[in-house]
Structures are given as structure tokens and as C-alpha cells.
């Protein structure tokens, strides 16, 4: 049933789609029937795969950059009080600025290549990761902090060393489930960054392909690309979700969906 349910949902949607197309007799450049979309998907397999690979690389790189920066920011904000006043406003500003508005600038500065897409993706992913991790770091169980403080008192090591050990052995591990939630959210929205980046200026990628086919009224190709993109996004989420759960076996099962 676990695997059957999504299958039923997909078949149901395809059925509704077919019925709508046959009842309304819409021309195929407005809404193509699912059969035609699948035919295009198979016929233009090479073309779609070529562009999909580029988009996939953009998404994964954006994800890696966004997660790294998010984690580093959260650690800095949590561990060093003075940093908070400097970094926190930037963190919030990174979300207040609409990515659609800065994406064209990035294209002007960096060209039509990979870099602006990765940056747009990273900008989107950065926020949930940083906020999730920071939240986890700030909410270590006080009982544990008390115990850790008492255990550290009998040591002769420096305050900096104790601070480091507290993060290494207590605070970071306790914050990992929150970080994982942030990464899950980031992964789910990661494709948006790559596609936005491709829309405002690119020479390759699924976003580019969709924009181009749209302009040429090749709606079947738009739909085929969209399906591949959705499939990629779901696969990525599934992989990340399983990876995170595998990495934290002590954590009680915490599915979002």
C-alpha cells in the first residue's frame, strides 16, 4: 500500500487530465493530452536528459553551498555573541530580497553559466538551514547544560577549549535533528533556485528548455520537462531524507509527510 498509494494518485491525475483534454477538445498547443507528453518524453529523451543533467548539477551545488553557509552562520551566531548582531540582520535580509530581483543582476555579473544559478539556489536554501540549526543550537536541554558545566568544572582547561568541547559533544549533536529539518525544507525548495536562475538568463538547463519550448508553443515539451524536473526533485528529497535518517539512528522516526 505504501508504494501503491502514490501510483494511484498519479494514475488518477493522468486520467483526469485525459478526460479534461478529450471533453474540452483543447488544441495541443494549449494543453496536450498525457499520451503526447509521454511520446515527446521518449522521442526527445536525449535533449531532455542533456538539459536535466545541467539543472541537476545546479541544484546539488546550490544545495551544498546553501547548507554549508547556513551551518557556518548558525554556528557563528550561536557561539559568538558579537557575531549575532552582524550576521543575523544579513540572514534575514537574504530572505527579504526577492531572488527574482537579484537573479538578473547575478547573470549580468557572472554570465550565463553555472555560477548565478548556484548562488540563487544557495540563497533560497541558506535561510531554512541556518534558522533550523540555530534554533536547535539555542535549545539544548538546560538539564544537560547544567550537568556539562559541572563536569567541566573539575578540568583545568581554558574556557575556549571547554566552549569548543561543549559544542562538539553536546550542543551540535543535540541540534542535528533541527538541522535535518532545515535541510529537508531546503531540499524541497532547492529546484526553485535553479529554475529561477535559468529563467532570467541561461543557455542550458530544464528551465531554459521550458522557456524556449513555451515560446515556440511546444507545450508537450514543456510538460515533459516539468515531469522530469518533478521526478528529480522527488528523488533528491527521498535520497536526502533517507540519508539524514540513516545518519541519526537514535532519532525517533520524524517524517514530514
Amino acid at each position: 500500500m505504501k508504494y501503491l498509494r502514490p501510483l494511484i494518485t498519479i494514475c488518477g491525475l493522468l486520467l483526469v487530465w485525459s478526460v479534461v483534454v478529450s471533453l474540452t477538445e483543447l488544441p495541443k498547443f494549449i494543453l496536450p493530452p498525457p499520451g503526447l507528453v509521454f511520446k515527446t518524453l521518449i522521442e526527445k529523451y536525449d535533449l531532455i536528459a542533456e538539459h536535466a543533467l545541467i539543472t541537476a548539477v545546479e541544484i546539488v551545488l546550490g544545495l551544498l553551498v546553501g547548507i554549508s553557509f547556513g551551518m557556518v552562520s548558525a554556528l557563528l551566531i550561536s557561539a559568538y555573541r558579537p557575531v549575532r548582531q552582524w550576521v543575523l540582520p544579513m540572514l534575514i535580509a537574504s530572505q527579504a530580497v526577492p531572488v527574482f530581483a537579484i537573479a538578473p543582476l547575478l547573470v549580468i555579473w557572472m554570465g550565463y553559466g553555472l555560477a548565478p544559478k548556484v548562488i540563487v539556489g544557495a540563497l533560497i536554501i541558506y535561510f531554512p538551514v541556518a534558522v533550523g540549526f540555530l534554533d536547535g543550537l539555542n535549545r539544548t536541554d538546560p538539564a544537560w547544560l547544567n550537568l556539562a558545566a559541572l563536569l567541566q568544572k573539575s578540568g583545568s582547561k581554558s574556557a575556549v577549549r571547554n566552549h569548543y568541547a561543549l559544542y562538539r559533544y553536546i550542543k551540535i549533536p543535540f541540534a542535528l535533528p533541527s538541522l535535518a529539518s532545515g535541510i529537508r525544507v531546503g531540499t524541497a525548495i532547492a529546484p526553485i533556485g535553479a529554475i529561477v536562475g535559468e529563467w532570467v538568463g541561461s543557455s542550458a538547463g530544464l528551465g531554459f528548455l521550458m522557456l524556449n519550448s513555451n515560446a515556440r508553443m511546444q507545450i508537450d515539451l514543456v510538460f515533459a520537462s516539468l515531469m522530469v524536473l518533478t521526478f528529480m526533485a522527488l528523488t533528491l528529497y527521498y535520497l536526502v531524507d533517507h540519508g539524514l535518517r540513516w545518519a541519526m539512528p537514535w532519532q525517533p522516526d520524524q517524517k514530514i509527510a
Binding site: L151, G155, N162, Y169, I170, P173, W250
Partner: peptide
């Protein structure tokens, strides 16, 4: 600590003191 073995939990004091 839920991620640490019994042994690691017993020696956490030393770990925290470096």
C-alpha cells in the same frame, strides 16, 4: 546522550574537559 554508547556516556566528563 542518545547517540553515544554506554561507554561513551560514562566518559563524557573527560571528553568535555578535553
Amino acid at each position: 546522550l542518545p547517540w553515544a554508547s554506554s561507554l561513551e556516556n560514562v566518559v563524557i566528563g573527560a571528553r568535555l574537559r578535553g
